[in-house]
C-alpha cells in the first residue's frame, strides 16, 4: 500500500509543482493605451490579489493555480474584466474599457483628450509574441535593441515651439530568439537609464546638444514605459528634435547571457583531442528597447563609439506625446 502511495505521489508530484505560476503584465486603457495604475488584480478562487503600480504593472504569484480560476481586474471608471487563467499569456496587456455612467439622461464617459504623438506605436507593435516557426523553433515577433552608448530617434512636429508631455518607450527582455537552442538570458526587471531631448544639428542633421535629461529607474517587467514630463516644461524651439536613450554601463544594468562553446577538455596520450562544452557568459546592458513588429521605418542614430553617430532605420518603440 505504501509503495502505491509513493507511486501515486511520484506521478502527481510534477503536476503539483507545475501548478505554481506567475501572472504578470500591464493594464492599459483600451482606447488611449495609457497604463492604468491602482487596478485591483485578483485570482478569484485562490483569493490572492495585488494592485497595479504607477506603470500599470502587476505581478501575482499563484502558489497553486486552480484550473478554472480567473483573473479579475477592477478599477473605478472601468468595466471589470475577467480573464480565465487558461487564457492568460505571458506578458500580455490587459485592456480595460472605460465605464459609462448614466445620470438622469446625461451620459458621462471617461475620455482623455487626444494629444498628438510623434513616432506613434501601439501595444500591438510591441507585444511579445512567441510562435513556432516553420523550422519548429520558437521565435519572437519583436527584437531587443541596445547600443553601447546612446540611441536617438528623430521626431518632427507640425509646428514649432513644441511642448513635450510624455515619452513612451517599448521595452522587452533580452531573451534568445530561438527556443530552446539559442543563448539564454533571464529577464531582469531592474534597470536605470537616461532619457534626453536633443536638438538637431542644422548642418549635419545629426543629434546635437542635450536639452533636457531625466534619470529613469525601473524595477518591474513593464513593456510599455510612459515617462510623464508634463510638469517639467520641456519645450523645444524648432519643430524637429531627438528623443534619446542613454545606456549606463553600471552593475545594475548587467544581464548575464549564457552561451556554450566547445573547447578541448582533454588530450589523450595518442594526441586525440576530447571536446567538452564550457559556458561563456556574455554581459548585456539594459534596457532592451523593442524593435517593433512593423514595416514602418523611422530615422534614428545610434552611438557605439563616443561622438560617432550611425544612421539606423530600425522601428524602435520610442515616441513623444506633445501638447497640441
Amino acid at each position: 500500500m505504501r509503495h502505491l502511495i509513493y507511486c501515486f505521489l511520484l506521478i502527481i508530484g510534477p503536476g503539483i509543482a507545475s501548478a505554481q505560476k506567475i501572472f504578470e503584465g500591464q493594464v492599459v486603457d483600451k482606447e488611449t493605451e495609457a497604463t492604468v495604475p491602482g487596478v485591483t488584480v485578483k485570482l478569484l478562487k485562490e483569493g490572492k490579489g495585488t494592485q497595479t503600480n504607477n506603470r500599470g504593472y502587476y505581478k501575482l504569484i499563484s502558489a497553486d493555480t486552480i484550473a478554472n480560476d480567473s483573473l479579475h481586474f477592477t478599477s473605478i471608471g472601468y468595466k471589470t474584466l475577467r480573464v480565465p487563467v487558461t487564457a492568460y499569456q505571458q506578458g500580455m496587456f490587459i485592456e480595460l474599457e472605460a465605464s459609462t455612467t448614466e445620470l438622469k439622461g446625461v451620459t458621462i464617459t471617461k475620455k482623455a483628450p487626444r494629444k498628438p504623438v510623434l513616432n506613434k506605436f501601439s501595444l500591438a507593435n510591441i507585444k511579445e509574441y512567441r510562435f513556432k516557426s516553420a523550422y519548429g523553433k520558437y521565435a519572437n515577433r519583436t527584437w531587443p535593441f541596445r547600443a553601447r552608448i546612446m540611441v536617438a530617434m528623430k521626431m518632427k512636429a507640425k509646428h514649432k515651439n513644441v511642448r513635450i508631455s510624455s515619452i513612451n518607450i517599448g521595452r522587452r527582455e533580452f531573451d534568445e530568439n530561438y527556443y530552446p537552442d539559442g543563448q539564454l538570458a533571464l529577464p531582469v526587471p531592474h534597470t536605470r537609464f537616461l532619457v534626453h531631448i536633443m536638438s538637431r544639428d542644422e548642418l549635419t542633421g545629426l543629434p546635437d546638444q542635450k536639452i533636457y535629461t531625466k534619470d529613469i529607474r525601473l524595477s518591474d517587467n513593464s513593456q510599455m514605459v510612459i515617462i510623464d514630463v508634463s510638469q517639467d516644461n520641456w519645450t523645444v524651439a524648432g519643430d524637429t528634435f531627438f528623443v534619446a536613450v542613454e545606456w549606463l554601463r553600471i552593475p545594475i544594468n548587467q544581464v548575464l547571457q549564457l552561451d556554450a562553446d566547445l573547447t578541448v577538455s582533454k588530450t589523450t596520450r595518442s594526441g586525440e583531442q576530447k571536446l567538452g562544452e564550457a559556458p561563456t557568459y556574455h554581459i548585456l546592458y539594459q534596457p532592451a528597447i523593442t524593435i517593433m513588429d512593423t514595416k514602418v521605418k523611422y530615422e534614428g542614430y545610434k552611438m557605439n563609439e563616443p561622438g560617432i553617430w550611425q544612421y539606423i532605420t530600425s522601428p524602435l518603440a520610442i515616441s513623444a506625446t506633445i501638447m497640441d
Binding site: Q90, Y129, R130
Partner: peptide, 9 residues
C-alpha cells in the same frame, strides 16, 4: 517559457 500558442517550453 510559454509561447503565444500556449505551448510550455
Amino acid at each position: 517559457r510559454m509561447s503565444a500558442d500556449g505551448d510550455v517550453i
